[in-house]
Amino acid sequence: MIILYIPLAVLILYFINSLTNALCIQKEIPEERQPKVFRTINILITILLISSFVEVTFT
């Protein structure tokens, strides 16, 4: 299970980051605010991925 989940999680994080980059470009978010936006989104997606892994594994 974990062998399939980790590559999928990395792929999801990659696509979310590319979508976040497109959002920053489209909304013209200043360069100094972009790291905060990326950090926030990455933390939230990581929490979501970990909680979904725990739910699938232990239920």
Rank of each mutant, 00 (worst) to 15 (best):
I25C: 03
I12K: 03
L49N: 04
N42R: 07
N42S: 07
L13Q: 11
T20E: 04
T46F: 10
K36G: 11
F38L: 01
L4E: 12
I16E: 04
C24P: 01
E32G: 00
I41P: 02
V10W: 06
E32I: 07
K36P: 00
I6R: 10
V56Y: 14
S52A: 15
I50P: 01
L11H: 11
I25Y: 03
V56R: 15
Q34N: 05
F38W: 02
L23K: 00
F58E: 02
N21A: 09
S52W: 09
I3W: 01
I2W: 06
N42M: 04
T46H: 02
I45W: 03
P35I: 07
F58T: 13
R39H: 12
F53P: 01
E32D: 05
I6K: 14
V37H: 02
I50A: 12
Y14Q: 06
L44T: 14
L49E: 07
P35E: 03
T59G: 13
P7K: 06
E55M: 08
K36Q: 10
F58H: 07
P35N: 06
C24G: 04
I12P: 03
F58G: 03
L44Q: 12
S52Q: 14
L13C: 09
N17C: 08
A22Q: 05
S52K: 09
I6L: 15
L4S: 14
N21G: 10
L23Y: 15
K27M: 11
A9Y: 01
L23E: 02
L48M: 14
L13T: 04
Q26T: 10
F38N: 01
N17I: 02
K27Y: 05
I50V: 15
I6Y: 13
P35W: 05
A9W: 01
T46Q: 05
I47W: 08
L19V: 06
N17V: 01
V54N: 08
I45M: 12
L23H: 02
S51K: 03
L23R: 00
I3H: 07
T20H: 03
R33C: 00
V10M: 14
L49D: 03
C24K: 03
F38H: 07
F58M: 09
M1E: 12
Y5E: 06
S18H: 05
S18R: 10
M1V: 13
I2H: 00
I45H: 01
P7G: 08
R39Y: 10
I25H: 02
F15C: 06
T59E: 10
Y5C: 07
V10F: 13
L19P: 00
I43S: 06
V37Q: 04
F58R: 08
V56I: 15
V54K: 06
I3R: 12
I25K: 10
F58N: 09
F53A: 13
I47C: 14
L49G: 01
V10D: 04
L4H: 11
F15N: 10
E31W: 09
L49V: 06
C24F: 04
I50H: 03
V56G: 11
Q26E: 10
